[in-house]
């Protein structure tokens, strides 16, 4: 199912949470809403779900080109997974998943046997087949997350909405679960939107990323494009570490943003090229496959550089040495946009 929202705004009093948001999601896509806290990503997700209403004067929310703005939360046929799962704590896993099926009006309600079969299928899908009788308090965080997902899927939603789905989990479980989510999505192909503040997560899992900042979408593109061609300095900065160089723009005053791994260190001037500059190695941080080198330029600014460990070994850098460095690629912006 496609989702399209047009000109959505949302404010609490004077506080503008969303400002004129337009977004179109193709059927079967997995889209990440990425942004820092307070960027409005969760609110946008809740507007799509129908948990929050957009301000007066906003455009429609279209599911398959049908306006659902005035359709109740329960009738939108969305599956919503809350950040803290909101599992019903007095019901066991089975009853949690079966809740939506049992809540259907009598005409549409499946029989008890069908409910059992359906829940069992979902339990197998989330690999918790033998935990049907457990209560939420007896599950780990990752298991709860999967139960919440199965509960949402039980009613065969047209769209799956996940609010910070991995936010409350520790690092290892996060990585595992997001791969599982990607595989799950590839199996069931339901249009999915998830909210995250973790750029790595967004880039790794999604088909497209909407980067949000201060209630606006800064860029909406596939992960690779977002990373390689950031539409704004904000996107560039939000997606990773960077160095900021002033006054190096080709069209007069401006600034350039450079990723630490897009800086190349040379021992001698000739191989470094014409634009190379001098830097003093002020600190070396070892950390696995990448070595972080901190350079101090003549005008006393610090430049972070990342080199692969083999390259570092070839260079045989030492603290206090002076080296040349050159920029491999850079993003240039006019000053107004940077600061």
């Amino acid at each position: 199912m496609t989702i399209e929202i047009r000109n959505i705004s949302k404010s609490y009093g004077d506080n503008k949470i969303l400002q004129n948001i337009d977004l179109k999601i193709e059927s079967g896509e997995l889209v990440a809403l990425l942004g820092p806290s307070g960027s409005g990503k969760t609110t946008l997700l809740r507007v799509i779900a129908g948990i929050e209403q957009a301000d007066e004067g906003s455009g429609p929310v279209l599911f398959d080109d049908v306006d659902v703005s005035d359709v109740d939360l329960g009738k939108r046929r969305i599956g919503f997974v809350f950040q803290h799962y909101a599992l019903f704590k007095h019901m066991n896993v089975f009853e949690n998943i079966a809740f939506g099926l049992r809540a259907k009006p009598r005409r549409e309600r499946p029989g008890e046997a069908q409910i059992r079969e359906k829940v069992q299928t979902l339990l197998d899908l989330i690999q918790l087949g033998n935990m049907a009788q457990r209560y939420p308090s007896q599950l780990s965080g990752g298991q709860r997350q999967r139960v919440a997902l199965a509960r949402a899927l039980a009613v065969e939603p047209r769209v799956l909405l996940l609010d910070e789905p991995f936010g409350a989990l520790d690092a290892t479980v996060r990585r595992e679960l997001r791969r599982w989510l990607r595989r799950l999505h590839d199996t069931i192909h339901v249009t999915t939107i998830f909210v995250t503040h973790d750029q790595e997560e967004a880039l790794e899992v999604s088909d497209r990323v909407a980067v949000m900042n201060a209630g606006r979408i800064e860029q909406y593109a596939p992960p690779q494009e977002v990373y390689e061609k950031p539409a704004s300095p904000f996107v560039f900065k939000f997606l990773g570490n960077y160095n900021l160089f002033h006054g190096r723009g080709q069209s007069g005053d401006g600034a350039a943003l450079v990723r630490p791994h897009d800086i190349v260190i040379h021992r001698d001037r000739d191989s470094a090229g014409p634009d190379a500059r001098l830097g003093l190695v002020s600190h070396i941080g070892f950390g696995g496959p990448v070595v972080k080198v901190e350079l101090e330029t003549e005008d006393k600014t610090h430049v972070d550089v990342e080199v692969t460990t083999p390259t570092f070994n070839d260079l045989a850098l030492k603290r206090g040495e002076t080296v040349w460095f050159a920029l491999r690629t850079q993003q240039e912006y006019e000053y107004d946009f940077v600061i």
């Binding site: 609490y12 129908g50 948990i51 929050e52 209403q53 109740d72 939360l73």
Partner: peptide
Amino acid sequence: MSRTHRVI
């Protein structure tokens, strides 16, 4: 009163 909570 915000419209938000009217969902409930």
